[in-house]
Simulated assay, not measured.
Amino acid sequence: NAVKIARAATGRPGVVVFDHAYHGRTMMTLAMTAKEVPYRAGFGPFPGEVHRAPYAYPLRWPGGAEHCAEEALAELEALLRRVGPDTVAAIVVEPLQGEGGFVVPAPGFLAGVQRMARRHGIVLVADEVQAGMGRTGTMFASEQEGIVPDLVCTAKALGGGLPLAAVTGRAELMEAVAPGGLGGTYAGNPVACAAALGVLEMLRDGGLLERARLIERTVRARLEPLAAQVPAIAEVRGRGAMMALEFVRPGTLEPDAELARAVAARCHAEGVVALVCGSFGNVVRLLPPLVIPDDLLDEGLGVLADAIRGACGGAA
């Protein structure tokens, strides 16, 4: 729907997305999603007019983290020159990537993307489906990057467990679509909308946002010292209650997907759900509930730490 709105508002066809992106499983969002297996494989051909730019992934940027934002923005500008900025309706970006590995963009990258979009009259769409609704310690992850997108996509936590998604944006963009142009079988479900109103009420006083920030501090205090001792952990990263560890072959940045799977399996065996993600399948992601009790969070992190040590052969 965000793409449809942007195209209606601009009269342009093109959409720019980024490496490591995940945007969904419809044919259009599969075209926008980067990961081939298990998402795209066997389902093509996909819609055209989708262009992919590098995401400012500091750990893996070829020129080094200190040049990441500047060089990624230069790559995006070069892409726009190649395809013609006046053919691009929208730039769609996750302010903190989800399935791609919980990648936090290099400082200044998203602000630069916003400036570029405004300069060329392109609609900036923030995909906040996973990172929004308080998950990262602010209502939207975009806030931590100092940007205000033209359109925002939300879902998952929005419905408090019930199926609901939304596109929210500037009135002149939303009203560019002809009446009846957007819709769906389950759009505006009254039970799901009531649940969403409850979610918004719970977020109103800021207590859950502070809770997400506390979870980040707790996770970092527990896992960053471990990462300093275990060479296979390349990085502990994330924001709020959206944290992850990336596993590599010690002494390199070669992804170690087997180790990530082994860590997750050990956690599962002890009753702790840990999910593997990342373009290379080498990231273990942590998404504890914002209301998780302190003792349960501590217990879960203990299981995770033991699983890492065990999977690494008792290192550290």
Rank of each mutant, 00 (worst) to 15 (best):
I5P: 02
L286G: 02
P58C: 12
R52S: 05
P179A: 11
R266A: 15
C277F: 00
D256Q: 05
A157H: 15
A307G: 12
M133C: 10
T10C: 06
A8I: 02
A41H: 13
P58Y: 02
V83Y: 11
I308R: 04
A228Y: 04
A131S: 15
L203P: 00
N282M: 03
E99L: 15
G198N: 09
G180L: 05
A126D: 06
P255K: 11
D150W: 11
G159L: 11
E99D: 08
F18R: 01
V219G: 04
K35W: 00
G313W: 03
A196V: 03
E246D: 06
G240K: 08
I292R: 07
I147F: 02
Y57L: 08
P250V: 04
R213K: 15
V284A: 06
T218Y: 04
P38I: 11
K156H: 15
A178G: 10
E70Q: 13
G146S: 10
L30H: 09
W61R: 07
Y22D: 04
A260H: 02
V152Q: 00
E254H: 00
E299V: 00
G314Q: 07
L182N: 09
A34G: 03
C68I: 07
A178P: 14
V272P: 02
P190K: 02
V263R: 05
A265V: 01
D127L: 01
R82M: 12
G132T: 09
R82D: 12
G134P: 04
H268N: 02
A41S: 12
A307K: 01
E99P: 00
L76P: 14
P225I: 10
A74R: 13
G100I: 08
V129D: 01
S142K: 06
R60V: 08
V3C: 03
I308T: 05
P107N: 09
A69S: 14
T185C: 00
T10M: 01
